[in-house]
Computed example of a mutant assay.
Amino acid sequence: MSEISPTSRALHLLELLQARRFWPGPELADRLGVTERTLRRDVERLRTLGYHVAARRGPEGGYELATGGELPPLVFTPDEALALAAAAASSAAAGSTGEVTLTALAKLEQVMPQGPRGRVRALRAAVSLGAPPDAAPLDASVLAMLALACRDGERMRIRYVSAPSVSGEGDGEERTRRVEPAGLVPRNGRWYLVCWDVEREDWRLLRVDRVHRAEPTGLRFPPRAVPGGDAAAFVAERMRAQPVFAATIRIAAPIDAVTQRMAGYARDFTAVAGDAGATDWRIADVRLEVLAGALLWLVWPYRVLDSPELSALLADRAARFAAAS
């Protein structure tokens, strides 16, 4: 029988329920060192605090933390809080959740112990907002569902929009895909999902901002070895395999004016030596159309210095824009 206080035991119970989707009753009682009758009282104590703890009856019964109408207080270990802070900082840097994410980081910082608090503060201070030119708004609930699927090894049904690319692989249509998530990786201001595509029977790298819906199927899958050793290595290898188009844009405006207008959208501005009224902007992407789209944000005259491919694309599109206007 446990000698800890009911309050401490309830907090421990909450931590266990948040760590795993479902617990058989006897196993959960054993982890807490209490009888199943005491466990039921502790569950009721959590329910009175606003937590939706669902009970499943029968020989294979147990407990799980169900989705509720309100967000009750959550319990994190220091390591979990640091991991959450790192993910939030990466998301804020991507520009998809921006200031809201920074506010969440600040709240985490206030309640953490002194040691981890300093590291969270450093993360928050290091974040600079800005998103890639074609980044769609990131659905935080989709990101969370995919993270849980990676952790639990659960097959997901997603709605995914494949954008047109230089290789011609994508066609811009939204389709349902069944995937087995292996890992989530932030890179270059975006989140990527490394997963096994069930229909194609191959590994795929998907942009999370193009996932419009993610639904768990309840089907578990055995772990697969990710090519390259892990999800991060897989993303790095795929990125290297894609041709990257880069261009320097000479903007006819001083760097202070450019930075002020473009802050939160773009970075990598450089003052032109010997010309205080000009600014160079270095842009790069795997698709020329993305580079061309980024230039729509500029309100000053500009010219392309070093990318014949981008110049040719602009010349082609210029006639179409003129006709449309």
Results as ranks from 00 to 15, higher is better:
residue 1 M to N: 07
residue 1 M to T: 06
residue 2 S to A: 12
residue 3 E to R: 13
residue 3 E to C: 04
residue 3 E to G: 08
residue 6 P to T: 04
residue 9 R to H: 12
residue 11 L to K: 03
residue 19 A to S: 15
residue 21 R to N: 03
residue 24 P to I: 02
residue 27 E to G: 09
residue 29 A to P: 02
residue 29 A to G: 01
residue 37 R to Y: 05
residue 41 R to N: 11
residue 41 R to A: 12
residue 44 E to D: 15
residue 44 E to N: 14
residue 44 E to F: 09
residue 55 A to C: 09
residue 66 A to N: 03
residue 67 T to E: 14
residue 68 G to H: 01
residue 75 V to R: 13
residue 83 A to L: 15
residue 83 A to M: 15
residue 86 A to T: 13
residue 89 A to F: 04
residue 89 A to P: 07
residue 91 S to A: 15
residue 91 S to N: 07
residue 94 A to V: 00
residue 94 A to D: 08
residue 96 S to E: 03
residue 100 V to M: 03
residue 100 V to L: 13
residue 110 Q to M: 11
residue 111 V to R: 11
residue 114 Q to R: 14
residue 116 P to A: 02
residue 116 P to H: 07
residue 118 G to T: 10
residue 119 R to Q: 13
residue 124 R to A: 15
residue 129 L to I: 12
residue 131 A to W: 06
residue 132 P to E: 03
residue 133 P to S: 11
residue 133 P to A: 11
residue 133 P to K: 02
residue 134 D to V: 15
residue 134 D to T: 15
residue 134 D to K: 12
residue 137 P to M: 09
residue 137 P to W: 04
residue 138 L to E: 00
residue 138 L to Q: 04
residue 142 V to Q: 04
residue 143 L to C: 07
residue 146 L to R: 05
residue 148 L to R: 13
residue 149 A to F: 00
residue 150 C to K: 04
residue 153 G to S: 07
residue 153 G to V: 10
residue 154 E to D: 06
residue 156 M to T: 05
residue 157 R to C: 07
residue 162 S to H: 05
residue 166 V to F: 11
residue 178 R to H: 15
residue 182 A to M: 06
residue 192 Y to T: 03
residue 193 L to E: 12
residue 202 D to Q: 13
residue 203 W to A: 03
residue 207 R to D: 10
residue 214 A to S: 07
residue 215 E to G: 03
residue 217 T to M: 10
residue 217 T to D: 04
residue 220 R to Q: 10
residue 222 P to W: 08
residue 226 V to I: 10
residue 228 G to I: 04
residue 233 A to G: 04
residue 238 R to C: 15
residue 239 M to F: 13
residue 247 A to M: 06
residue 248 T to F: 00
residue 249 I to Y: 00
residue 251 I to Q: 05
residue 253 A to K: 03
residue 253 A to R: 02
residue 254 P to F: 01
residue 254 P to S: 05
residue 256 D to V: 11
residue 256 D to Y: 02
residue 261 R to Y: 08
residue 266 A to H: 03
residue 268 D to L: 13
residue 268 D to F: 06
residue 280 D to R: 00
residue 281 W to G: 01
residue 282 R to F: 01
residue 288 L to R: 06
residue 291 L to I: 06
residue 292 A to M: 03
residue 298 L to A: 11
residue 299 V to K: 09
residue 300 W to N: 05
residue 300 W to D: 07
residue 303 R to D: 07
residue 305 L to P: 01
residue 305 L to I: 04
residue 308 P to H: 04
residue 311 S to D: 11
residue 314 L to Q: 01
residue 315 A to H: 08
residue 315 A to T: 13
residue 319 A to D: 14
residue 323 A to C: 01
residue 323 A to G: 01
